[in-house]
Amino acid sequence: MHIVATPAHRHPVPGMPRSIAAPGPVLAGSAGTVMAAPVAAPAPARHTIAIHHVQQILLGAHRLGCDIEALLRRAAISPALLASSSARVTQDQYAALIRTLRRITRDELWGLLSRPVPPGVFAQAANAMIHCTTLEEAIQAGLRQYRLHIGDFTPRLHRSEDGRTISLRLHAHAPASPCQVFAESTFVFHAYGLINWLVARRVPLSSVDLSARPPTGQTDTERVFNTSVRYGQPCTALHLDAAWLRLPVMQDATGLGEFLRDAPHKLLVRYRDNGCLAERIRLHLRSHLDDELPSLEQMAQMLRLTPQTLRRRLRDEGRGYQNIKDSLRRDVAIGMLERSGLTLQQVALRLGFSEPSTFHRAFKKWTGVAPGEYRQRGMQLASAEG
């Protein structure tokens, strides 16, 4: 059971447009027409995770001299995938790797910092935050907990001179190593997920600054934060409208235990922005995968938009229509290869490919690995673990 934000739980924020605080995803037509979400639709395919994030999360384990291949095998991830910059893993695999790293390193940041963050600190912070009245009070309480355990950087809230913007900034005490840079990214990722959970809704960010260099391979950072991300910044930070900090804390001790069992790897999945246009299109396409997927022009007609407007809106979200179709097919294919007993030909047909060879070429383009090889590696790992 997941904690969800119901309409009764969503509080309009004073001074903000009503549309921001209104619950539920909608699609706007060309004349401002609001179209309700379909009553019944298949669950959207779960997003997979770029191998770049796997490589980064292992930096601390490398530094500590851990057996990387053994760690990956416990998470059912083929070590060979690390060699392909376009490879992907499932959310379950990534979550299993997080659990394994936490257990092996006895560190909630997996050996990335100069001293470990003891298991239980996240729970202590969450417990302190649920007893606060407003989101601002809760964030301050959580940061006080972490400042007791992290010496490489200091997390603090800053208000802009005009009082309209709040920034959660991580002030590094020395030039950051690659391990610390990823630890900073992880810290703000977890902080943002915790913020969303506390108020039982997704709080929109105005922008994100990361001290990390721009990644060379695929990354999911922009999609996760659903805002523009600036790399190579002097300070890692989350920026948001100060009005959101007046939201009341909605959680209490009753749901804390269940929340902690899922956290932190499901924090942002729970409050993913299904209202953005790209996610709404992905949901619609999910129900038509075994047919010929609609063209951009056909999709625009369904949404009562012109093709030019659809392209522009997707471009504003940093997406393209073909990219949405390819990523959906890729994620569904990986899920089928991981969990189902379907043959490769059946998988190809269910994804709308008339020929298995076409699916083979597409999958290798998406992930750097042929579908048969991807499944075989997974079976070998499962057999070895069994």
Rank of each mutant, 00 (worst) to 15 (best):
A75E: 11
V117G: 02
L71A: 09
A95T: 12
G111Q: 04
D152N: 01
L135F: 06
L81D: 03
L97A: 06
A96F: 11
A141M: 01
L82H: 10
P119T: 11
Q56P: 09
I166S: 14
A138L: 02
L112M: 06
L81M: 05
G65D: 07
F122E: 11
H149C: 01
M129A: 07
T133D: 03
L101M: 12
L101V: 11
G142C: 06
A128D: 10
L97E: 08
L59R: 13
L109G: 04
R144H: 06
E137Q: 12
H158P: 01
D107S: 05
I98M: 11
R156W: 02
G65L: 10
A138G: 01
D162G: 00
I68M: 12
T154I: 11
T154K: 08
I57R: 13
L113T: 14
I51V: 14
V121F: 00
H149T: 02
P79Q: 03
L97M: 11
A96P: 07
D107M: 05
R147L: 01
W110H: 13
H53S: 09
L72R: 11
D92M: 05
A126P: 00
C132S: 14
A125Q: 00
L101G: 10
I68K: 12
V54A: 01
R106P: 03
L58C: 12
R102F: 05
I51C: 08
V89Y: 09
S86H: 15
E161V: 12
A50C: 09
L59G: 03
G111H: 08
L64D: 14
D152Q: 04
